[in-house]
């Protein structure tokens, strides 16, 4: 297999990220020029690795929850008996996209209190939209001839769903999940304004103490994490497309 520049860049990125999270002090000289008045160049109020881990966890759990709900909803409204709910669910998804994350976070605080709760709810709500939209497109683009053939083979509706429609829609659903994860990683940083444990803490500490080194290291870790996860999920998607023998989706 040919090793491309992109692969090397990804590998270097992953190693740098791991090294920084495990041994942040080793990078102190790099960040020192960004500080003034002898402020610490590396964030020490919390363990960076633990912060990154809880950031990652909250993103994963929220996205899993929204995948579960959004795919079920997508399946529901594409069934014959759920068609009544389709126009409304599309409209709600479109309106939902206009809600700014800060507003969602701030408005859920009185309901569930400060901490991880509001962030989880906000990430969950934001994940619903792209995944639902993509599930719809994925299921609707299954050719009628294919479902007809499945029916002709004597498959029950459940068999058609699990053996024909969902597998064929899987790449599209994964695209939705990938978009949701990347957005969630960025949005989770804003969650730190309502006391969620995550890498946003580092950035906000930097903003409050006017320490650019904190802002940059927090931002870089989040950006690197998002880019690596995006790439990994894209690779997974491609391998599934290959395995299913679908024509490669060249839109991205």
């Amino acid at each position: 297999m040919k090793v491309s520049v992109g692969t090397i860049a990804r590998l270097v990125g992953a190693i740098l990220l791991a090294a920084f999270l495990v041994r942040p002090e080793a990078f102190a000289p790099l960040f020192a020029p960004l500080t003034s008045n002898g402020a610490p160049p590396i964030y020490r109020q919390g363990n960076l690795l633990a912060l990154a881990w809880s950031h990652f966890q909250i993103v994963v759990f929220a996205t899993l929850a929204s995948t579960l709900v959004a795919v079920s909803l997508g399946v529901l409204v594409t069934r014959r008996s759920g068609a009544e709910f389709l126009p409304l669910s599309r409209a709600v998804v479109n309106v939902g996209q206009t809600f700014p994350p800060v507003a969602v976070l701030a408005l859920t605080v009185p309901l569930v209190g400060f901490g991880d709760g509001p962030t989880f709810i906000a990430l969950f709500a934001y994940g619903l939209l792209p995944i639902f939209e993509n599930t719809l497109v994925g299921i609707q683009q299954v050719p009628a001839a294919v479902t007809e053939a499945a029916r002709g083979c004597g498959m029950t509706p459940a068999q058609r769903l699990f053996r024909v429609e969902l597998p064929l829609a899987l790449p599209q659903i994964m695209t939705g999940t990938r978009l949701a994860v990347v957005v969630a990683i960025g949005t989770a940083t804003i969650g730190s304004t309502v006391a969620a444990k995550g890498l946003g803490e580092v950035i906000i500490a930097g903003l409050l103490s006017d320490n650019t080194a904190f802002i940059v290291q927090g931002g870089l870790v989040v950006a690197l994490m998002a880019a690596l996860i995006y790439d990994a999920m894209l690779a997974a998607e491609r391998s599934i497309i290959l395995r299913l023998g679908l024509p490669a989706n060249e839109r991205e």
């Binding site: 960025g186 949005t187 927090g218 931002g219 950006a223």
Partner: peptide, 17 residues
């Protein structure tokens, strides 16, 4: 695309310098 992955609060902060 890379710019998009930088979280908003960090990008705002980084541009202050």
């Amino acid at each position: 695309n890379i710019v998009q992955t930088i979280p908003s609060i960090a990008l705002f902060g980084m541009l202050m310098v």
